[in-house]
Design a protein around this nucleic acid. Structure first.
Lengths: 172, 172
DNA sequence: TCATTAATTAATCACTGCTCAATATATCCT
DNA sequence: AGGATATATTGAGCAGTGATTAATTAATGA
């Protein structure tokens, strides 16, 4: 997957690499969707650790930009892993697992924390709304960037900067 | 595709439906990616027509909300088509065609038009930046919504409203 | 009419996800 | 120890996929 993208990851090739047979994969994972989601969950865990390590102190501006930078640098160093999160075609009926959802929640919490000084301690709902807003925006940017459909002249960094600027202009 | 999603669309099944054989499909389209992208281009054309028909006059607020509503209503009435645009796993080397890119550009132009009164006639670059900002945000929301990974309690409409509110708060 | 061109098929290749009977390996109990 | 039980692993196989191409059929124009 890291070499050629999720779409090139087949159970047989994976099994070959680890000295097994495809059947064994299905003893460990329910199906391919399950396998990919567990990888994605692991990727989110890594992203969280990366962001956590790059958390800054200080103003909202400073903290948000540091967080956004951490997102961008992670996405750039793990393009295939991001691609799997954003573009892997899960079966329509596939539901995200609690483990996956809780990783997403941890990332949202990080965003909540970054913007927390804008709100009082009793305004958790507003922090969460803002966190979701930023998450949606970042997700869109990364999705378009990975698909190569972000306009050429404007880089990933610029798009993220514009989003953070917009947010700060609205809230400060 | 409209019945079961792009992932269920195979050349053989498609050919069967129209009374042909899969080989003939490859006389008309280069490959599956080409076929899907031509469908996606057509979907964007329909989206443009839909949005164009729902364009409102008046304040930026009014115009933007009307446009956002048009997006949402189209996405809700054409979920499978949207899914194809957002989630179909094109080959990594696949480049978007000029026809596809020009449809995207037309939609961006619509967004530019909606926010035009915020800027002077010589500030096309700023209008385009804002249009991209909104497009990225909407794209992220729809991508998450279709994946069923937008938080349950908050609907698609709310997420879009929050985005528009944020934009208006920043720019007005 | 009939040669030329275009459209269509059917067979085929190399894959894929997934299942499951059969086999091999490890573990436990006497 | 060795027999019985449980676990791990395989390999063959099914039904499907995208894509190619020689052979066939249909349409065209002089």
């Amino acid at each position: 997957m890291r070499e050629k993208g999720v779409s090139a990851l087949s159970t047989r090739k994976l099994a070959d690499r680890i000295g097994y047979t495809s059947g064994t994969i299905y003893q460990v994972f329910q199906n391919r969707d399950d396998l990919v989601e567990q990888m994605n969950t692991e990727t989110l865990r890594m992203l969280y650790a990366h962001c956590h390590a790059h958390m800054a102190e200080g103003s909202v501006q400073h903290r948000l930009r540091a967080l956004a930078d951490a997102f961008v640098s992670f996405a750039k160093t793990h393009p295939r892993e991001w691609d799997a999160i954003i573009n892997y075609p899960f079966a329509p009926e596939y539901q995200a697992t609690p483990a996956y959802l809780s990783e997403i929640q941890r990332l949202l919490d990080l965003l909540c924390e970054a913007v927390s000084e804008l709100y009082g301690p009793d305004q958790a709902d507003r922090r969460l709304r803002d966190a979701r807003l930023l998450w949606n925006g970042l997700y869109g940017i990364f999705a378009l960037a990975i698909a190569g459909r972000l306009s050429q002249e404007r880089s990933l960094n610029d798009a993220v900067d514009d989003l953070i600027d917009l947010y700060l202009a609205a809230r400060t």
